[in-house]
Amino acid sequence: MRDPLYQALADWIDAVLVAPLPDGIAAFHFNLYEGIEFELQLIGAPTYLADDDDWACDDIFMSDDPRLELPRSVVGEAWEMGLAAANDLLARYMSSDRAGAVRLRQSQAVSVGFVDGDLQLVWAAD
């Protein structure tokens, strides 16, 4: 059921990360927005602090619009379902060999979370 959505996510991330990125990105975060649909935006931050979610507030890179839409008809209506779906899709992507996943794994960490909420770690370097 989520395969078309996974493909859309993977293609979107690969397209975002094909362009040169600013130097100094330590970690990446996927901002999740709740509106008519859920939407994802990718940011890059110059620092990563495992015990302080504020690291994701200091971005030096932000993906351009459009954001990636996660339709409620696919992921579910409740915010918890949107967050769980985003986390699951990103975890699957991070374990792939896609170009964007390789680039993301060159950082210290990748997380996801609502803009005004807690972050959920999707991946971290050993």
Rank of each mutant, 00 (worst) to 15 (best):
T47W: 05
D58P: 03
D58K: 11
A56E: 00
I43Q: 06
Y48W: 08
L42H: 04
L49R: 14
L40N: 05
F38Y: 13
D51C: 06
L49G: 06
G35R: 15
C57H: 10
E39S: 15
A56C: 07
E34F: 05
A50W: 02
D58R: 14
F30K: 02
G35Y: 12
D54H: 10
F38W: 06
A45I: 01
Q41D: 15
L42F: 07
F30M: 06
D51V: 03
E34C: 07
D51S: 11
Y48R: 07
Y48T: 03
L32Y: 04
T47A: 14
Q41T: 13
N31G: 07
F38R: 02
C57A: 12
D59W: 13
D52L: 07
I60F: 08
E34Y: 02
C57T: 11
A45T: 08
D51M: 10
A50S: 09
A50I: 04
D59K: 07
P46D: 14
L32W: 03
D52I: 06
E39N: 12
F28K: 02
L40H: 08
I43T: 13
L32V: 05
F30C: 10
G44A: 03
F38L: 06
I60W: 05
G44L: 00
D52A: 07
F61D: 02
D53R: 04
F28L: 03
D52H: 10
Q41Y: 09
L40S: 02
I43L: 13
F28N: 03
I36F: 12
C57D: 14
A45Q: 06
E34P: 00
A50N: 09
Q41H: 12
L42C: 10
D54A: 11
I36A: 15
L32F: 03
L32R: 03
Y33Q: 14
P46G: 14
A50R: 08
Y48E: 04
L40C: 09
G35A: 15
D58Y: 11
A56F: 01
E34L: 07
F61V: 09
D58A: 11
D59S: 13
F30I: 05
D51P: 00
C57R: 13
H29C: 05
D58H: 14
Y33A: 15
A56I: 01
D51W: 11
H29N: 09
L42R: 04
T47C: 08
I60R: 00
A56K: 03
F30A: 10
A50H: 06
Q41W: 09
I36P: 08
H29L: 04
C57Y: 10
N31V: 01
D53Q: 06
D52R: 04
G35V: 10
I60Y: 07
T47D: 13
A45S: 14
E37C: 12
Y33F: 15
Y33T: 06
I36R: 15
G44M: 00
D54R: 14
N31Y: 02
D59R: 10
Y48D: 04
F28P: 01
E39G: 15
A50P: 07
Y33D: 14
D54P: 01
I43F: 11
W55V: 02
F28D: 01
D52M: 06
I60M: 07
L49Y: 11
E34I: 06
A50L: 07
